[in-house]
Design a protein around this nucleic acid. Structure first.
Lengths: 150, 150
DNA sequence: GGGAGATATATGCGTTTGTATCTAATATAG
DNA sequence: CTATATTAGATACAAACGCATATATCTCCC
């Protein structure tokens, strides 16, 4: 395989992944649930449900969400003002802030998440077989692990 | 396979794709070239290089970029003000606007694109074999085609 | 061919974002 | 132990975004 073809394959597979994300996101955004809770806001709440302790530091959130630190800081302000999350000072490091879901926040995440999962299911199910989904999961995990270990 | 496991597989593979896009994007954004030309701006210029005629309608751009119509309209304003693209009225439809690269815009896209491709190469090459890239390309194409035909 | 509705893009306006910078707290070096 | 550097998060401000809506053109049906 020539160097040029190799380069083309690498960029094409990335671009295809990127465009697929755009296409699916555009489709998911049609869901009315995303009106009351934008996809970035949802992402924050979702990440909070996934962590074992129930609390995440702001900088940990920042690693998972494609937003700058100040943007997350202010988004957390808004979510707190809406009563969906609450802050507390991190023990042992008074600079740090821990974020956790309120009951109301957990309930809203669950509700929006349900609609969200339903839509994703419908999209993925038609497009790929179970084996193909497993392969996709495996390949994307590989990329992520590789990027993380830099 | 149970319905619950099936559902989990569909959402997990999608979330993995999404998180991979975030992780890779975050990495690509470290590239200094993206300071002078944001990734969305780059995306516009890139799309213009890919189309055969060299001209794209605003609404065509809108299909490929994850932005609302007004945002693209204004982004095109800015790119035009910077001399990177130019507008012309579409022939046969005086509502329509065609966008094309200027020489300067084409040159900048090429320059930024070079650095961009180099980084993508380095990321993908380490993570996946050629066969795996081909598989990823195939699977993401399938998803995109499926979503497009709704 | 004239008016109702559809389509393509632009603009007003409030909200959210990113860059740069600030404050407070912790870690490190001498 | 103090001074300096580093890290976590917050804030000021200009730029960019999305939603609603305006404007211009086209399409279709009578």
């Amino acid at each position: 395989m020539s160097a040029a073809a190799h380069r083309r394959l690498a960029t094409e597979s990335w671009e295809s992944l990127l465009r697929t994300q755009v296409a699916v996101m555009r489709e998911l955004h049609k869901e009315p649930s995303f009106k009351e809770l934008g996809s970035r806001e949802y992402d924050i709440l979702y990440n909070l449900t996934r962590c074992p302790s129930g609390w995440l530091r702001l900088n940990e959130l920042n690693e998972h969400v494609l937003l700058t630190q100040p943007s997350i800081s202010r988004m957390v302000d808004r979510l707190e003002a809406r009563g969906l999350i609450h802050r507390k000072t991190a023990e042992g490091d008074r600079r740090g802030v821990l974020i956790g879901l309120t009951e109301e926040g957990a309930a809203l995440q669950k509700e929006v998440g349900r609609a969200h999962v339903k839509n994703i299911m419908e999209l993925m199910e038609v497009a790929l077989s179970d084996d193909e989904m497993r392969t996709l999961l495996e390949l994307t995990n590989k990329i992520r692990e590789s990027v993380a270990s830099r």
